[in-house]
Design a protein around this nucleic acid. Structure first.
Lengths: 146, 146
DNA sequence: TATTGTTATACTCTATAACTATA
DNA sequence: TATAGTTATAGAGTATAACAATA
């Protein structure tokens, strides 16, 4: 068993390094948690959606989403209100302040992503994309078995 | 900004799913933390090494390594003793019980890794390998800049 | 009874830095 | 003074489940 060659380990190390370099932008400079950042980014692409949809888009569970959305609301970045058609649902949407904040952050994180991707040629990017999708499927089925 | 297409997000989601499926083995069945599992795996490939080397091999910091090694020692899985040549150093090595535990766990996690890799053909594996190495370099340089 | 979301709680992890022993 | 490792501690994140409101 060679740890250095073990795919889950290699992925964990690379991903952690990349995550930190992104968090250096949205967390250190803008005091957003990872979950808050994900939700803002997801909401920018959606209109008014349910909390559960927002959770699904960001791979967060309902608790993580609930807390992060409350925090974003308290900072005036998102609007959160009960759906009058079905009062069990909460509808969330980005507020102008949230949109403005994203306009500041997005170029920086995209620049960092671009710098990472510059290391790869077109074919490598395509294969990486495909490989991640395939690995995701297999990982899901491993998780289901337990 | 499309979160679903953002490389750091995709990597994080895939890596977390894979990490969980591995932790299902070493944590749920054998009560090892991620750090403990990494150290055991690293020590299996080395003989007697310094704590600092063990930390470096596993990408842990000295604190994480210190705690995980103490825990492994308390369970009789590793030996930890001060280096008599330089009493600031701690020398660690796997004990038979640790080796035996690894012999149980390793086949299971390698089987899971093999199942993941079966999703990829040879070329995809080679490209993924290369891509991860290149991304790691770039991520490191992003981290250094801050 | 089932669904959506919130709250509670205990637990683990993380980050920073102070500290000890040794060199 | 510098190095290797440990201890302290506060803060953040995670997991499980109970809970309230609504359907």
């Amino acid at each position: 068993m060679q740890l250095q060659a073990f795919l889950p380990y290699r992925l964990a190390v690379v991903t952690e390094a990349i995550s930190r370099s992104m968090a250096a932008v949205y967390h250190r400079r803008y005091e957003l948690s990872r979950d808050e950042w994900r939700l803002l980014a997801a909401l920018a692409g959606s209109g008014r959606i349910q909390a559960a949809e927002a959770a699904q888009l960001t791979t967060l569970d309902k608790m993580q989403a609930s807390r992060a959305l409350r925090s974003l609301q308290s900072r005036g970045l998102v609007d959160r209100r009960t759906d009058e058609n079905d009062r069990r649902h909460v509808i969330v949407q980005l507020l102008p302040a949230g949109r403005a904040l994203l306009r500041q952050i997005t170029p920086m994180v995209l620049a960092r992503e671009a710098y990472l991707l510059e290391a790869l040629d077109d074919e490598e990017r395509a294969v990486l994309d495909r490989a991640l999708a395939k690995l995701m499927q297999r990982a899901r089925s491993l998780q289901q078995q337990g």
